[in-house]
C-alpha cells in the first residue's frame, strides 16, 4: 500500500511506547471485565491480544480507545494519559475498527469514508479516500452502496476507514471474525502490509494462527493478563524442547541408548497416537521423547546412538508447539483453577 499521503504525524515518528498500561481494571458493577492488566506496546509493533470469548479483549480496546472509563489503574495511549480530558486528542491519534465494521449501508463506500474524514477534520479528503481505498483494493467499488458488498468487502471498507486519518495506533478488534477463509486471508494480507510499513497495530483475535502469523508479540488474556511475549518465547516458557524418535522395533535397552547423550536431559517412551505412523506400541514401531538442553548437539548424537544400537530409525523430529498449544495450556489451567 502506498501511503504517500501520510500526514506529518506519521513523518515525525513518535517516540516512546505507543501504549503503556499499568494495573488497568474495568468493572461493570460487580462484574469484572478485566483486572490489573499491565503491558506496553512499542511504536511499529503488531501486538496480538488473545483470549476466549468474555476474556475482556473488546472491553480493553474500548477502554484504551476512550469509549469506556477504567475503574482503576493508568494508561498512556499515543503519548497521552488516558483521561477523559484527553479523550478527543487520543481519538484524533488512533483509529479503532470494531468487530462489526458498522457501515452506513444505504450510503456508498466513498460517502461512508467522506463522513469519517469530516469527523477527523482531515484535509485533502478526496486524495485520502482514494489512497485508503487503493490500500484495501476497493477503489473500483467506491460508488457502490455498502449494502451491496459482501461481509469480507465491508470489513475492508472498515479497514480503509480506519486508515483514513493515518493513525499512530490502529486497534483492530477481531478483524476476521465471521469471514470465510478466503476473505480472512485477504484481511491478513492487508494487516501484514501495514505491519511492513511500520504501523502500530493492536490486534484482538481468538484466531491463534492469525496471531502467530501477524504479531510480533502477543498477550494472552482471561480477565487477567496470563502471559505476554513473542510467540516463540511463550512456547519455550511453557514447553520443554523435545526430540521425537521413532524406530521400527522397540529398543532393547533405551536407557543405555539415550542416557549420557550430549544435550539430552532425559527420555520417556511416547504413548500417544499408538495407531499412528511410528506410534509407540503400534504395529509399525516404537516412539521415544527426549527432553533436551541443546537440540543441535542432541539430534545427531541420538541418531548415531539409535543406529549404533542396531535399530532402524524411522523418524527423528524436534517437537513443535504452536501458539495454540500455549494458549490452550494457559486457558486450561484457568479452567482447572476455577473448577478446583
Amino acid at each position: 500500500m502506498k501511503r504517500d499521503g501520510a500526514t506529518t504525524r506519521t513523518a515525525a515518528a513518535p517516540t516512546g511506547p505507543a501504549i503503556v498500561v499499568d494495573g488497568l481494571t474495568k468493572r461493570f458493577g460487580e462484574r469484572t471485565a478485566f483486572a490489573d492488566v499491565s503491558f506496553d506496546v512499542a511504536y511499529g509493533e503488531v501486538f496480538g491480544f488473545l483470549g476466549p470469548n468474555g476474556a475482556g479483549k473488546t472491553t480493553t480496546v474500548r477502554t484504551l480507545g476512550t469509549l469506556l472509563a477504567p475503574t482503576s489503574g493508568n494508561a498512556t495511549v499515543a503519548g497521552l494519559p488516558l483521561t477523559e480530558a484527553n479523550g478527543v486528542e487520543i481519538r484524533r491519534r488512533i483509529a479503532v475498527m470494531p468487530e462489526s465494521p458498522g457501515l452506513y449501508l444505504r450510503l456508498s463506500v466513498a460517502e461512508n469514508l467522506e463522513f469519517f474524514a469530516g469527523l477527523y477534520e482531515l484535509d485533502d479528503r478526496r486524495g485520502r479516500i482514494e489512497r485508503a481505498l487503493r490500500a484495501v483494493n476497493l477503489l473500483d467499488r467506491a460508488g457502490d452502496p455498502c449494502r451491496a458488498l459482501s461481509k469480507g468487502l465491508r470489513q475492508r471498507v472498515g479497514l480503509a476507514r480506519a486508515l483514513l486519518s493515518d493513525p499512530q495506533i490502529l486497534f483492530l478488534d477481531e478483524p476476521t471474525s465471521g469471514l470465510d477463509p478466503l476473505a480472512a486471508r485477504d484481511v491478513h494480507g492487508l494487516i501484514d502490509g501495514l505491519r511492513r510499513q511500520g504501523v502500530t497495530i493492536f490486534l484482538t483475535t481468538h484466531r491463534l494462527a492469525e496471531a502467530e502469523a501477524l504479531c510480533d508479540r502477543v498477550g494472552i488474556m482471561n480477565t487477567t493478563l496470563r502471559t505476554i511475549g513473542r510467540p516463540d518465547e511463550l512456547r519455550e516458557q511453557l514447553f520443554a524442547k523435545t526430540l521425537q524418535i521413532t524406530t521400527r522395533t522397540p529398543l532393547d535397552d533405551p536407557d543405555a541408548v539415550f542416557a549420557g547423550l550430549p544435550g539430552v536431559e532425559g527420555w520417556h517412551a511416547r504413548t500417544a497416537d499408538p495407531g499412528g505412523p511410528g506410534g509407540a506400541g503400534g504395529a509399525g514401531g516404537a516412539g521415544y521423547v527426549l527432553t533436551l538442553s541443546d537440540a543441535e548437539l542432541a539430534a545427531p548424537a541420538a541418531a548415531r546412538a539409535v543406529v549404533g544400537a542396531g535399530a532402524d530409525l524411522l523418524a527423528l523430529s524436534p517437537s513443535h508447539h504452536s501458539l495454540e498449544d500455549v494458549y490452550l495450556q494457559l486457558i486450561d489451567e484457568d479452567v482447572e483453577a476455577r473448577t478446583r
Binding site: 469509549l67 486528542e89 484524533r92 479503532v96 470494531p98 458498522g102 469519517f116 469527523l119 472498515g158
Partner: peptide, 14 residues
Amino acid sequence: EQGTLEPVLTTPVR
C-alpha cells in the same frame, strides 16, 4: 441498532 454508533464514537467528535 445498525452498529454504526461505536465507529462514530471512536472519532474525535464531541
